[in-house]
Design a protein around this nucleic acid. Structure first.
Lengths: 330, 330
DNA sequence: TTGAAAGCGCTAACAA
DNA sequence: TTGTTAGCGCTTTCAA
């Protein structure tokens, strides 16, 4: 596997035309005389010529690739976002530059700064607070952000977490639950929105909320906190988890402790990851439409790159998915 | 967010030195007089100069990015590979260009051909047969392939699927299973290796194998085929699935049909995806070490790029993970 | 230690 | 319709 890659000059020379002509031909920029067209086609084929995209990008300033930064591709929520974004990118001829910051905020800035020079735009999922994000707007590239922004002029895409949480809580209350607890993940900006939705609903019913703090949005963390939630003086009769992964871990651990689900406690999460379908009982959840979020973000970014005006914010409506992990109390 | 990006010339002019000097300084190519060093440092800082990686790549021919092509990021097996590969890439200063071919073979070639011009090397997961892959070696970039190759001179990384299948089957036989079935996925090159391992073991015990063909490596497919496997004249007492996803779907569906697992049928898969832990019963599986495969592939590729000699093949040993979905017969 | 100059492979006016 | 020319921003001999 070695070099000898044909350049546009080789093609031009072999075809007896100028490089400009070849360039225009390759980019389909105009029409040509049949003779020239035939020759160039033949020469390109024979030499196996392919335009060097780097050289082209240098001049046009467009790389036809888009940076996507997520917190953890291993989390199905983010994986779905990547899927959705990738599909749209592909359809528009863009390639995805993936960055997985692995929930490490220090990593984000240098990674994104480097990335920004190689892409036409970026889609960013971050744990940073808005006050620490000003540098992003200095990057000189179109951006789309996952999450609500109040000050920075970056278009964003969000799911309506508050509403989703409200819907879920309301359902739990209507099932007769009175001792509702929330397993939180305060590091996430979405945590407080979910908490807000839960609180709003509980307040309307004069119910209390118990909060247990989680320190990672993972199944392992759900397992870890389970005993402290379930083996206190009085355990909740329903637990809302920050996400499905935590719910999965919690359920497993609770069952290991001898609790019957959903009889002893109803459990629900957020994200509607596929794997919530395969637990026993299957997991009630709020579908945040992860893949659609990815699609929406990528569409918005590409439209911005193409100079089409875009509404700054896109909100995606969640859907409550009822399954066996939540049960009516009597 | 607009242009006004400082170039190396701006820095050189402002610092009163040549662009060559700035270039060498930025790349740490040599030592400088304190005066020059101080000035350049200051000017770079003041102008917010960052080297344009595209321009640099044009000359050096190195992009510091690596293409990774997988069949479906949504499949946890591939997600883990991406995780592993990404971690190594990051540690070596490389960025990942992700390609998700979505199990669509026609897509692979054009995608990889385009990709090859923007990266220093590629790691490829493909459903293509070796006979159709010659064009890959023409790409002029270092490659690493996931899967065994006999003719092409591309380094590869594999898990020992044959051995993994053998181990699993042997365990099932030792548990007393006699009517073993395999839910296959013939489109995958690894399917026959797994099949081979199963067959070898069963032959040693004079046992028959029933094969059910699956058409997608997904949970949905596992659900779909369940009834035809379980509701025939006589159902198997153990089912090995091509992968964990199919096993997850199968188990759910079987339980829906009223079967008790693992009493009525033992089920096992391949990959050791995280979610096999959260089913009831949890899934027995063969851990193919997905993340380690990603790590190995990336390490091998980077070593190749760096001109370090590498053994052509790396085989990763699988590990049998026993959980509740397989049970002793009596 | 520093600089001059020659490109890397391509595109984009502008002319012809 | 085709060609000339002037770079894009950077690295790299080679000479000073």
């Amino acid at each position: 596997m070695k070099k000898n890659v044909a350049t546009i000059r080789d093609v031009a020379a072999a075809a007896g035309v100028s490089t400009a002509t070849v360039s225009k031909f390759v980019n389909g920029a105009q029409r040509f005389s049949p003779a020239v067209e035939a020759t160039i086609t033949e020469v390109i084929e024979r030499l196996g010529y392919r335009s060097n995209p780097l050289a082209a990008s240098m001049i046009t300033g467009r790389t036809k690739s888009i940076g996507l930064s997520v917190l953890d591709v291993g989390n199905p929520h983010f994986t779905s976002i990547v899927k959705g974004a990738n599909r749209v990118a592909l359809a528009h001829g863009y390639t995805l530059l993936l960055v997985d910051t692995e929930e490490n905020p220090e990593r984000e800035r240098p990674l994104l700064e480097a990335l920004s020079r190689r892409v036409d735009g970026m889609i960013v999922f971050s744990r940073m607070r808005e006050a620490e994000m000003d540098w992003m707007t200095q990057l000189g590239k179109p951006l789309v952000f996952f999450g609500r922004l109040t000050r920075l002029e970056i278009p964003w895409v969000i799911s309506d977490d508050h509403r989703g949480a409200y819907m879920l809580t309301r359902h739990l209350v209507s099932l007769g639950h009175r001792k509702i607890a929330y397993l939180s993940f305060p590091r996430s900006r979405r945590d407080e929105e979910r908490l807000g939705g839960i609180r709003e609903c509980l307040a309307q019913h004069q119910l209390e909320l118990t909060i247990h703090e989680g320190s990672a949005p993972t199944a392992a963390e759900g397992e870890r906190v389970c005993s402290s939630i379930m083996l206190g003086v009085e355990h909740p009769d329903a637990l809302i988890c920050y996400n499905d992964l935590m719910a999965l871990g919690f359920m497993k651990s609770a069952q290991g402790l001898g609790f019957k689900l959903p009889e002893d406690i109803s459990v629900a999460g957020f994200d509607n990851i596929q794997y919530g379908l395969y637990t026993s009982p299957p997991l009630t959840t709020v579908d945040l439409q992860s893949e659609r979020m990815g699609v929406a973000a990528m569409e918005k970014l590409i439209a911005t790159i193409d100079g089409k005006a875009q509404p700054a914010a896109t909100t995606i409506e969640p859907q409550l998915i009822l399954r066996g992990s939540t049960l009516k109390r009597n």
